[in-house]
Design a protein around this nucleic acid. Sequence first.
DNA 1: CTCTCAATTCAATGACTGTTGAATTCGAGG
DNA 2: CCTCGAATTCAACAGTCATTGAATTGAGAG
Lengths: 179, 179
Amino acid sequence: MLLEAARAVFAENGYERATVRSIAARAGVDAAMVNHWFGGKEGLFAQAVLKLPFEPAELVTVLHDGPIDELGARIVHTFLTRWDGVGGDTFQALIRSIASHEAASTVLREFFSQFFTGLISDLGGDRRELRVALCASQLVGMGLIRYVARFSPMVEAEVDTLVAAVAPTLQRYLTGDID
Amino acid sequence: MLLEAARAVFAENGYERATVRSIAARAGVDAAMVNHWFGGKEGLFAQAVLKLPFEPAELVTVLHDGPIDELGARIVHTFLTRWDGVGGDTFQALIRSIASHEAASTVLREFFSQFFTGLISDLGGDRRELRVALCASQLVGMGLIRYVARFSPMVEAEVDTLVAAVAPTLQRYLTGDID
DNA sequence: CTCTCAATTCAATGACTGTTGAATTCGAGG
DNA sequence: CCTCGAATTCAACAGTCATTGAATTGAGAG
């Protein structure tokens, strides 16, 4: 499938360095197919990468399913298990393309914005936007170190270990004292 | 200066998208000078960006200067003020070049490794490597959201606000309970 | 002045890039 | 068998890139 090949190559090289030819080659088709089906490299990138790894709305319902003081743990656990799976490529492609593709930043921004704003609005509390940004910073940082920079302690750590370590951070950013 | 121009352009565009011509133009010289002085685009990148954002050793001494239970606050404050200043270009160039340049990942990895390992060895405690990785994840994430993805609540926040919010996280990662 | 040598400019080169349009294949419908 | 049209290939194009080497400048030493 052309889309899978695209995700893989974009994840490895970022937008600029990933060539249409190499993507097509990995998918076993001619480079011209990219134009025929997706209108060009840009369209392929949009279809393959610029879709959110998952629907914010769906995630919100999942995360509401449990006690509020374990919300941080559920968030970290959900993100890690999803990213460890198929979504990892998409996330990695997003990060790796931030330099050469403004839209990548926008998608990342909007994802966290939608997701956390929807989540946090039910929680009440002050300074919602800052809290969202703080959560995003910790989650993105975790993803960057684990999936992109591959800092080994973070790569080898079990999901549960990371959940235990990081969950209190998100919990405080969401519902705790940030002054 | 050619090196300053290089840092700026690499920071704006990442390695692949930054052209030798545009760097040379910004520095007011011919593109061929890059080859003459640095042996090519690669060499220029190494000299301009592939240096640690600042000396780990120097930072460690700064950070030791104060009570241990305010260590997290001093770290966040130090990084933010440095990144808000000149160092931001180097950091941004590193992040933006992670996609196309494996060496950029290595530098980032080694910086946090050296820095925090040197810092944390005096603190004792278990699971040092994991603690380092956790601190790195929060700091890099904060930098990514503030300087690269430009998530507005994080961009507009005052340094002190962020210090107050993030410091407890690092403090716990360094000296607290992470189980 | 002249010689020298490094610094700098200039034009050209070769390698990729995304994209295009014509040519070709191939299978289903008449 | 023939036809039509979509799917796919192929070769070529125009553009941009880093890099190269020869030409040019400019200053300092003899």
